[in-house]
Nucleic acid binder design. Structure first.
Lengths: 237, 237
DNA sequence: CCTTGTGAATATGTTCACAGCA
DNA sequence: TGCTGTGAACATATTCACAAGG
C-alpha cells in the first residue's frame, strides 16, 4: 500500500549495461524501477487517446511484457487497480509520477552545445514530463553567448556557480568522449547527483552519484549481433 | 536493466532494459550480448591509450562489473585470454567485432531531419564502429533537398526504393511520436529488419524485426526515483 | 605469483495459477 | 463474469572459488 523509495543503488546503469546494486532487503529492484517510466509513458499515450481505464493485459500487449509482470511491478508500490475493472489511467499516472518524483519540475544543466547538445536543448518533450533544461554550457569560448532556443550558451567555468543558483541536481553530458570524465568531475564537484551521459564511456563517479548512459552504437551493435546471422552468419537466438 | 532493448520476440522498452525471450537452449543470453558492445567500446578506448593487454579485473573496474562476469560472458564465445597474462586487446577487439558483426559497414537509413535527426546524421562516430548513415528522409516536403552534412534530405516516399538500392537492413527513427509507428511500418515494408527508435513509444513490429529504443526521459525518470528521496521527499518510505 | 575459464552455489527475476472481490 | 494481487514454482543471471596454465 505505501509507496516506497529506496536508497542504495550504485552508480551505473545504461543504455545497455544495467549494473549491480546492493539493495537493502526490502528495497524495490532497480529493474522494476526501470520499467515504471515505460508504463508511465504508455499510460500518458492512452490518456491522450482519451482512455479512462486500462488493464494489465492491455498494457502488456502494448509493451510486449506479460500482464503478470506489470501487476507484480505495480504491486510493489500499492494496490492501484480494481478487480474486474483494471486501472484508472489518470489515477495511475499520478501515482507513478509521485513514485518517480516527476510530480515536480527538475532543473537540468546541459554541458555540450554541439549538434547533439542543441538537439537536446531544443527537445520540447522534457517540460511536460518533469524536466527543464535550465542552462547550457560549452567549453569552447567561441560558442559562449550564442543562443540555443531560449537559452544562451554559458562558459563551462560558470558551472559551479550556476548549478548552485539553479539548485540543479541533474546534469546531461553531451561532449566528446575525451572531455566527458572531466565534465563529470566538474558537475559532481558542483553538486550534481545524477548524470545522463551521451558520451561513449563509463564514467568513474562516487557511489552517491547515479549515472545513466545513452549510446546509439551500443544499441546498433546489439542489433547487428542478431541481424548478422540472418545474413548467413553464425549467431544468436 | 532497464528495459531499453529487447530480444526479438516482443517489442520492448526504453533506453535500456532487457526483456524476455525464448531462446533455443544453447543460445547465448541476450543480456550477455548487450554487454559485448560495452566491452568493445572500452577495449577500443584502451587501445587508443596505446595499451596492448588487459585483464578481466581491469575491465571490470573500469566498467563497474565483476571480473567473473566478464570472463563468463566472453567464455560463451571462445577462449580469448591467457592465464597469468590476460587478454590481448587488439585481438579481443577483432573477435568482438566479428561476433557482433561489425567487422563490416552497415548502411543505415535515417528518417526524420529535425534537430535530433541532424545531430545523428552529423555524428562522426558511426563510421569507425561499423555503421554509415546512407540516406536521410523527412515527411516534410519543405525539407526535401536541404543538405545535412554530405547528404541531401530525401522524400519519405522514396524509402522503399532507396532501402532496396542501398541494401539497408537498419533504420533509425527520429520523428515525432505520432509519426513513429507509420514510419516503422514503411521501413519494415521496405525490408528493414532492425530499428533504432528515438520516439517515445513501443512499436508494434513483426517478430523478425528487432527494435531498440533510446529515450532520455526514461533514463531521467529512472534517476529521479533515487534522487527524490535524498531530496527529503515524502515519496520516500 | 598472476589470471583465465568454469562448475556449483547463490541471488535475482519472471511466470503460473488461483483466491478473492467488483 | 473479468480482473487484480500474490505466493509458489520456475527460469535466468551473477558470484564464488578453485583447478590449471603461463
Amino acid at each position: 500500500m505505501s509507496p516506497q523509495s529506496d536508497p542504495s543503488p550504485s552508480a551505473n546503469a545504461s543504455a545497455s549495461g544495467k549494473s549491480s546494486s546492493k539493495r537493502a532487503k526490502d528495497a524495490i529492484p532497480d529493474i522494476v524501477i526501470g520499467r515504471l517510466p515505460i508504463y508511465l509513458r504508455t499510460l500518458q499515450l492512452l490518456a491522450e487517446e482519451g482512455r479512462e481505464v486500462t488493464s494489465s493485459q492491455e498494457l502488456g500487449e502494448r509493451l510486449g511484457i506479460s500482464s503478470a509482470q506489470i501487476r507484480k511491478d505495480l504491486s510493489h508500490f500499492g494496490e492501484f487497480g480494481k478487480q474486474g475493472t483494471g486501472y484508472n489511467i489518470p489515477y495511475l499516472i499520478r501515482q507513478l509520477e509521485k513514485i518517480l518524483h516527476v510530480d515536480r519540475l527538475w532543473p537540468v544543466v546541459l554541458v555540450g552545445a554541439g549538434s547533439l547538445g542543441r538537439a537536446i536543448a531544443n527537445y520540447q518533450g522534457f517540460e511536460s514530463r518533469g524536466f527543464r533544461i535550465a542552462a547550457v554550457f560549452d567549453e569552447d569560448p567561441a560558442k559562449v553567448g550564442e543562443a540555443v532556443g531560449a537559452l544562451t550558451i554559458e562558459e563551462a567555468s560558470q558551472i559551479p556557480q550556476r548549478v548552485q543558483e539553479l539548485g540543479a541536481q541533474i546534469g546531461i553530458i553531451a561532449v566528446p568522449v575525451h572531455a566527458a570524465q572531466r565534465v563529470a568531475d566538474t558537475l559532481i564537484q558542483a553538486g550534481i547527483r545524477g548524470i545522463l551521459c551521451y558520451a561513449p564511456i563509463t564514467l568513474k563517479v562516487p557511489e552517491y552519484v547515479r549515472v545513466e548512459y545513452i549510446d546509439p552504437l551500443i544499441h546498433l551493435q546489439h542489433m547487428t549481433y542478431y541481424l548478422g546471422q540472418a545474413n548467413g552468419e553464425t549467431g544468436g537466438a
